[in-house]
Nucleic acid binder design. Structure first.
Ligand SMILES: [Mn+2]
Ligand SMILES: [Mn+2]
Ligand SMILES: [Zn+2]
Ligand SMILES: [Zn+2]
Lengths: 142, 142
DNA sequence: AATGCAATTGCAAATCGTTTGCAACTGGTG
DNA sequence: CACCAGTTGCAAACGATTTGCAATTGCATT
């Protein structure tokens, strides 16, 4: 899954456009989000943010994730068991979670996406969003 | 989605087989689960159970759902936003959730199931379980 | 650069769904 | 019908997230 790193400035630009203030704390979080390629949870983002701005609070991380989610700059995933995990918004894709390591692997299937649309349509619905998560374990190549 | 109602006695038999006691509270819950065709949450099961046995507690509902889940007699779903919802175990199927009414519609696609397997395999994984949820709104037939 | 004020913050407390410790109770076997 | 491990109700604890509030700060305005 190729992912173009969103630029911190892209985020800030979008925030300003929405009349939202760029605070020191938000800059720190945006910096972290823009350069991360994984799916960290709020606490992990908080830990990374503290390294940049020790005064930041977990509340602010949560509030910022909420804000960014609302404007569509990030996506929130509630994988089984754990807390919500975040990633900067990119093209839609789904996830395979390694149930032994917790690793998250991204994938995309146009066929599945299309079948979903057909199923929804046949039931009289339009899909607004969906969630497809595969939980598996690495096949031991014996 | 055709669903054969599980019999309360099926549940009890399985529980006894596992050396688990059939208490008044468990009977009440099993009765409710065996005759429900929807996806109630713990609180709703509790409400229905109280009507049968006023002494039952919410804790016992949760403990019983855990127990039944562990032996595979029921399935637990964590749909977006709300609390866990339960249904008695039947053949695998996935869900379409009406984001306006909360209604849950069941569906099954062998094609999607197969594509999932192929994707996992191509990534070097075996699927242990998965979650596919479509969130949509009723198409207005205008 | 100084002012003004609504937006934002950190903190603590609240919330929600769920789990758990514990003393009292009870199913089911002998 | 006695026994006792399994089960219960209750209240308190839990983990993730949200919220009220008084203090702070971004930034548009002079
Ligand atoms: Mn992703
Ligand atoms: Mn179902
Ligand atoms: Zn998808
Ligand atoms: Zn499925």
């Amino acid at each position: 899954m190729k992912k173009r790193a969103a630029k911190r400035l892209d985020y800030e630009k979008e925030l300003r456009r929405q009349g939202v203030r760029i605070t020191r704390q938000r800059s720190a979080i945006l910096g972290i989000l823009s350069e991360t390629e994984d799916h960290p949870d709020a606490l992990e983002i908080f830990r990374r943010a503290v390294a940049v701005d020790p005064s930041i609070s977990l509340s602010t991380v949560y509030r910022t994730m909420k804000l960014l989610g609302d404007i569509g700059a990030i996506h929130r995933h509630a994988f089984e068991g754990g807390p919500s995990r975040f990633e900067h918004a990119t093209d839609h894709h789904d996830h395979l979670i390694d149930i032994e390591t917790g690793d998250v692997i991204e994938f995309k299937s146009d066929k599945i996406e299309q079948l979903q649309d057909e199923i929804a349509k046949s039931l009289g619905y339009d899909i607004v969003h969906h969630r497809l998560e595969l939980y598996g374990r690495k096949r031991r190549t014996g």
